[in-house]
């Protein structure tokens, strides 16, 4: 039953930035939700306050991690939760990223993988990075490019640091818009990192999430480099109330984002994001 939330218990709260926390959630009863795929989202209910869509930022057996930025009443209530507190979850909802489900199968099979994140847009992409690192042989070269407003706005900073320094199969680069005096890294928008990444545009699948302007700029740049539009996968966001395709809120033209998204190909998303106030 997708209409009624399933109780989950907060097992861990991790402060990512000044306004963002990651909640680790485990089923409070014997049964949890069906397995999530990277890119899918849950409707997370704060008791008595309301419910918002949040992508999974980590899937660990029955446990789910949701990274929430405090921007409204519900997200503020979720950010204030402590271990032991309960939430309600519905899901999994929506389309996921085009990861390789079995060796050699799927859009991204054997392809270079290019993960481009802006701000908290890294949250739904972290499971992509983790899945690719778990089975790097299914892909070509792996790239993670992250942009944030300032170094303090970086989520998963420790993990990123580890990925950046360890010489593993992942090329990881970070840039900030506004450097603090202590910042030693790149400065500028995330597309400026594309030259540093190792990928063959004819054999690459890109996964992009962040503010819509950042998604558009990245997709345009990648098209220019020769990536076919359908291999540029982007995760879009709209208001969601029901997540079951019945409330009409998540419409973006002919797309119902809770059902046909949030992950869509740029072949479809391009025209949808180029009309103002669509």
């Amino acid at each position: 039953m997708t209409g009624v939330p399933v109780p989950y218990r907060v097992t861990r709260v991790r402060e990512e930035t000044a306004d963002t926390v990651s909640l680790t959630l485990a089923p409070a009863g014997p049964a949890g939700l069906a397995r999530f795929w990277p890119g899918q989202f849950a409707m997370v209910y704060a008791f008595g306050v309301g419910e918002i869509p949040v992508s999974v930022s980590r899937i660990h057996r029955h446990q789910l991690v949701h990274t929430v930025r405090s921007v409204g009443a519900v997200s503020a209530a979720l950010c204030a939760l402590r271990p032991g507190d309960r939430v309600g979850l519905r899901g999994p909802f929506g389309t996921g990223w085009e990861l390789v489900r079995a060796a050699g199968q799927g859009l991204a099979a054997g392809q270079d993988l290019l993960v481009v994140a802006g701000g908290i847009g890294l949250a739904p992409l972290r499971p992509v990075v983790l899945a690719a690192l778990a089975e790097p042989r299914r892909y070509g070269r792996l790239n993670l490019l992250v942009g944030a407003r300032t170094a303090d706005d970086l989520v998963y900073a420790d993990q990123i640091r580890a990925w950046s320094t360890v010489h593993g199969p992942l090329h990881c680069a970070v840039t900030v818009d506004r450097p603090t005096p202590a910042w030693r890294g790149h400065v500028g928008v995330v597309t400026t990192l594309l030259n540093s990444a190792a990928f063959d545009p004819r054999h690459t699948t890109a996964c992009v999430c962040g503010p819509e302007v950042m998604i558009r700029a990245t997709a345009r740049d990648l098209l220019h480099r020769g990536l076919p539009a359908h291999r540029i996968r982007v995760s879009l966001e709209r208001n969601v109330r029901c997540a079951t395709g019945h409330c009409g809120h998540c419409q973006l033209g002919g797309v119902l984002l809770c059902r046909d998204g949030p992950v869509v190909g740029w072949d479809r998303a391009c025209s949808l994001t180029s009309v103002r106030e669509l």
Partner: peptide, 26 residues
Amino acid sequence: CFCTTTEDVSDLTGDHAERWQRWDSC
């Protein structure tokens, strides 16, 4: 026209909450 929104209400104790659906308009 089928669009709806949701309202979350709770009682004075704060321990009983309800989810209601009502018509909404684009």
